[in-house]
Design a protein around this nucleic acid. Structure first.
Lengths: 231, 231
DNA sequence: AGGACTTCCTGTCGTTCTGACAAAAAGCTA
DNA sequence: TAGCTTTTTGTCAGAACGACAGGAAGTCCT
């Protein structure tokens, strides 16, 4: 067999997005109702195929983030690859999943394109009865777990907050993502002790009721030292 | 535009392997000398394209692990995806990189297939003068960094050791991967304190010189509590 | 105006964890 | 037996952590 006519197989490459945010102290994920055939009508993660052979994968992820969710300038990081042969009935589709974290501000899903997108509480999306298209249930689980782990030793929590935030708002992020209750006094001490995590914003304050809280911004540090410890 | 003739682009999917091991207290990575055209003669990570359209990606990784390195039954985990458009001159190649950890035992590279594979100290492979094919330098860096991080809060270090090992052998793993010196007394206490990390093996011992050391096996736990802390 | 209430922020206290070091234990070699 | 090496068991002070008390600074209600 001197000349081998073997050619590597060609694959369809897709991107899927796990977009997490906080709404009234609960963790939500953005899901869209599918309008085309495989799993028509079922809930699925936003995503799609590469536009053409030259599009970068992360560029495609940001494009879908903008097209399907109306979001830009949010935290975005690669999550994992899902390429099991039977995962898509249309053929061999390998999907690169990304994890995106959006601040709580964009309350209603911006409606330029697919307005059939909606924020679903993660607990509901993963409830035993809930059915997600493809292997998206597994992808959501992996995305949430990634967020939980990264909250421990990186400054990812600030990506859930607006540019200015209070320490108790930051605490709500940890409580919602970890699904635990934390002591405000110890949390305050811990967060202040991790230098570079948060820095004081203007000495302004804001207040619905109770004593006004100081405002902070995300600091320059991305890796927490010492890390936050989950109970 | 009611019917859109657009078709998603088709991509070449490859797997690349960062295989790490310890040889005389230094971290090594397995590299092969390329025998075909792109980057012919340069050092590269073992890897290759999917065999056919139905091969699972991790199965392909284990196949390459066996074909190009003669290894089986080693720790293997997904590392990341590398799909930048220009990374392979042959076309749009998206590569799924895996991280493999091999115990120190298989000293010479098993020579069934490609005997042009060799263990290279990571320091040499990443030295400023060294040239690796494609973007494999970046992949090696990411693989080593992944190993460093996972050593902190998982039991990954035991994957570098044989089935039975001493605590000082385990310490050498941490010292080589982290490139630090650790206090044997504190390391001993720390490792013993993380329950489930290591369990006593037969009360046997072994000894080149010095007091004989107790033997341990990897415990049932994969996540360390408390974690190992890097100085 | 003056409490009542809410939330934010600063401390305290005892336990646990950590890093630096001492010293005994258990082999080998000469 | 003395000397060397390496493993194992302790000790001790300082840092980190969980649980909790209490003052500070606002709003709301009467």
């Amino acid at each position: 067999m001197p000349d081998d006519p073997w050619q590597p197989p060609r694959i369809l490459l897709a991107v899927d997005l796990v977009i997490l945010t906080l709404r009234d102290a609960r963790l939500h994920v953005l899901l869209v109702e599918r309008g085309i055939d495989p799993f028509l009508g079922a809930l699925a993660l936003p995503g799609g195929f590469l536009r053409d052979e030259h599009e970068d994968i992360e560029v495609a992820a940001r494009r879908e983030l903008s097209e399907e969710a109306g979001l830009s300038d949010v935290h975005l990081e690669p999550l994992a690859v899902y390429g099991e042969p039977g995962r898509d009935p249309r053929g061999r589709v390998v999907s690169v999943a990304y994890l995106a974290i959006a601040p709580r501000l964009p309350e209603p899903v911006a409606g330029t394109d697919a307005a059939n997108a909606s924020w679903i509480p993660v607990d509901d999306a993963l409830a035993p009865g809930a059915k997600l298209a493809f292997d998206h249930r597994r992808i959501v689980i992996d995305g949430v777990e990634r967020a939980r782990v990264k909250l421990e030793h990186t400054a990812l929590a600030t990506a859930f907050c607006a540019e200015s935030f209070t320490i108790s708002e930051l605490q709500q992020v940890y409580e919602a993502v970890w699904d635990v209750r934390l002591d405000p006094r110890n949390f305050y001490r811990k967060v202040q002790g991790a230098r570079g995590f948060i820095v004081a914003d203007g000495p302004m304050r804001k207040t619905p009721n109770g004593r006004p809280a100081r405002l902070f911004r995300a600091g320059p540090i991305h890796v927490l030292n010492p890390p936050m410890t989950r109970p």
